[in-house]
Nucleic acid binder design. Sequence first.
DNA 1: ACCTGAACACCGTTCAAGT
DNA 2: ACCTGAACACCGTTCAAGT
Lengths: 233, 233
Amino acid sequence: MNAKQFTSVWTRDPRKTTSPGRSREEIVKAAIELLDEEGLDGLSMRKLGAKLSAGATSLYWYVANKDELLELAYDEMWGELTVPDPEEVGWREAASVLAYSMRQAMLRHPWSADLLGRLPALGPKALQAADRMRRVFATAGFKGMDVDYATSTVTAYVYGTTLPEVAWNNAMDRHEYDPDEMRTMLRKAARDFPDMLERVNTEMYDDPATVRAVAFDFGLVSVLDGLERRLTT
Amino acid sequence: MNAKQFTSVWTRDPRKTTSPGRSREEIVKAAIELLDEEGLDGLSMRKLGAKLSAGATSLYWYVANKDELLELAYDEMWGELTVPDPEEVGWREAASVLAYSMRQAMLRHPWSADLLGRLPALGPKALQAADRMRRVFATAGFKGMDVDYATSTVTAYVYGTTLPEVAWNNAMDRHEYDPDEMRTMLRKAARDFPDMLERVNTEMYDDPATVRAVAFDFGLVSVLDGLERRLTT
DNA sequence: ACCTGAACACCGTTCAAGT
DNA sequence: ACCTGAACACCGTTCAAGT
């Protein structure tokens, strides 16, 4: 009966921000820098401590544990989304801009892709973003739960496209990227799949960024078309 | 000029499978069991060694490092997808079944959500699944690159919906889940967002599984509708 | 109120040594 | 050909002790 409480940074009251010493914001900012530069594995309490010229364990005064620190960093990234006012630009345009800015935020902070499947986004900035997104689809004309369904359909699409993109970039960063090497490797891997072999020879692997941008747009338009159809029937 | 080679288990020739001693399959199987039971963090070379009653370092004879082991486990999960023959059931039905089986596979192996943003899916089973998916959209009538775009639109949708679902489940597993606790917590968090507050009172948090199933279907139908529209214009 | 270092229980991985 | 244990360089976190 007495279930343990669901705990997360967001359930706890934040420590008062007194002026002396370090601050939570400062720590989170430094953590994000480290994450951007070195990825999720690059962030350790010791390294972060050193970066702030403090003992590794000093951080535990400001943050209960590393997971909470990640929750805080994660929420910052949600704060980078821009969700236009649908009354001004129309819902389709607003949805497009939102989708693109989401993709950009994830590409800017590749570690966020690792957190998507691990931490629910319950921080204040994430909630605010979610609220503004709902507004987009509410003005589009969706009613009741359909507002939520529509919202998560497009966010799901963005997550889903950007995630493998990030995975790919990560793999490329760890090694050197050489289009020719890659091509031969894929050709070997795709030996048994004629259809796939065919497209290894396209420009897909010379200019993956452009191909992905086109692919993103194709899918986004389709998703929005599909949602629009729900409105008119 | 001499870029380092892109390395991954799949570029390397597998060791011959001689009968004595342990085998790669056995190790991967045990790894997946551990992953399913304890999650990504639960898998350590030492624990896995113990499970196979072997020294932790014995495993390095079969596998170059932990990352390769994860690549192998990841590919197994891709092997669990069922992609029906579109000639038999029609492309929409085939796409639906594929989407549902993908979602199921991810929910069965929650650790796969953590790998989606980290490892490109280049294993043989992943490639085979990708090939069969392409066939679905090729028979639907897409041409050239559009086949790939359509394919990744629906896979992206499935990733994107299932990922936060897995994240949520993970968070719930770590603590006890109590709908009432959760509700009060969310009510507090959503204090500033009236629209959101409203739906905390729905059945959404009493029976999240059903709500998610409905949401999944809503989005899937929309995505397929949107793709169908590309075919007819 | 804030910060520290030592200590604990873990990691992945290398390598010389064994059979 | 296969397996081992010791060793190295890391982790996150606790806690008594300092200012």
